[in-house]
């Protein structure tokens, strides 16, 4: 989107991989000379960098790798609750149906994203021919907005209301909804995004017994997703990563 968002998204992505063995991978995520676009990642370098990472880390890394190397146009804007968002985002946010009234007007700041999107939104970008050419994501860092479908045991019960971190929201919006939609995933609108939230949390919550997982009852269709499915990995990542690793093995890398 702009240099500020690029720098924040870079930090969000790199911070999503906390282990020491991810140093090489983090180094592959870079912003190009124009200060805005991420640089394409070399296949062989990526294949080398993910060796030794857990399955979950590899899956999340592959999601970002796929988007960065994609020919589609994916824009990410990152704001705080008090910062103004871009005019490009405003043209969508101001016009989201059934949202704004005389009493509740948009402020053109991150507060709107909290209000409309619970901290994050993602929509399609169409080209001149009306073909889908990319996705636009916006999310709030330091959001005060809670999400009310975090479960504390495998059998869903009374939910916790927690605030999603920037890393979790990025995984949810940019990969779950964004890459999911661009990959024509049949479950992009709900399941994939919830799976990406949970994938991020499995990597980043340090005490495994304290991992809370989202079951999707406070998202999209509000359909409850059972534990095993909510903690799965979308097909376009699982299958894509498998094909990638197979390809690398066949090349002798």
């Amino acid at each position: 989107m702009d240099a500020r968002s690029a720098s924040r998204e870079l930090d969000v992505i790199q911070s999503s991989f906390p282990g020491n063995n991810a140093t090489e991978l983090k180094g592959l995520f870079k912003i190009g000379d124009n200060g805005v676009d991420f640089s394409a990642i070399n296949e062989k370098d990526f294949g080398h960098a993910i060796k030794g990472l857990s399955d979950d880390e590899q899956a999340l890394a592959y999601g970002y790798y796929s988007l960065i190397n994609s020919t589609t146009r994916n824009t990410v804007e990152v704001v705080t609750p008090t910062e103004r968002y871009s005019r490009q985002a405003a043209t969508t946010i101001f016009h989201i149906p059934n949202t704004w009234t005389r009493d509740i007007l948009p402020t053109a700041t991150g507060k709107d994203v909290d209000y409309v999107g619970g901290g994050g939104l993602n929509w399609s970008v169409f080209g001149q021919n009306h073909d889908l050419i990319g996705r636009f994501s916006i999310f709030v860092i330091n959001s005060g907005q809670t999400t009310g479908d975090y479960q504390t045991s495998a059998i869903a019960g009374s939910a916790l209301h927690l605030i999603s971190s920037g890393g979790e929201t990025s995984a949810h919006e940019v990969i779950g909804h964004g890459l999911g939609r661009l990959s024509s995933s049949p479950t992009w609108s709900h399941e994939d995004a919830i799976q990406l939230s949970n994938l991020y949390r499995r990597i980043n919550v340090s005490v495994p017994s304290n991992i809370d997982w989202r079951n999707g009852t406070d998202h999209s269709s509000n359909i409850a997703i059972p534990y095993d499915k909510a903690n799965g990995i979308p097909d376009y990542i699982r299958q894509g990563l498998f094909n990638f690793k197979l390809g690398q093995a066949l090349l002798g890398n």
Binding site: H95, P97, G117, G118, G120, N122, S124, F126, H177, H219
Partner: peptide
């Protein structure tokens, strides 16, 4: 007009990180 219609359709389909969608019913 077609562009406006298509963009508007997409707006209806936005799924927030949390909370209700703005009009769609699954």
């Amino acid at each position: 007009k077609i562009s406006r219609i298509i963009n508007r359709l997409d707006l209806y389909m936005i799924r927030p990180l949390s909370g209700p969608s703005r009009g769609i019913k699954a």
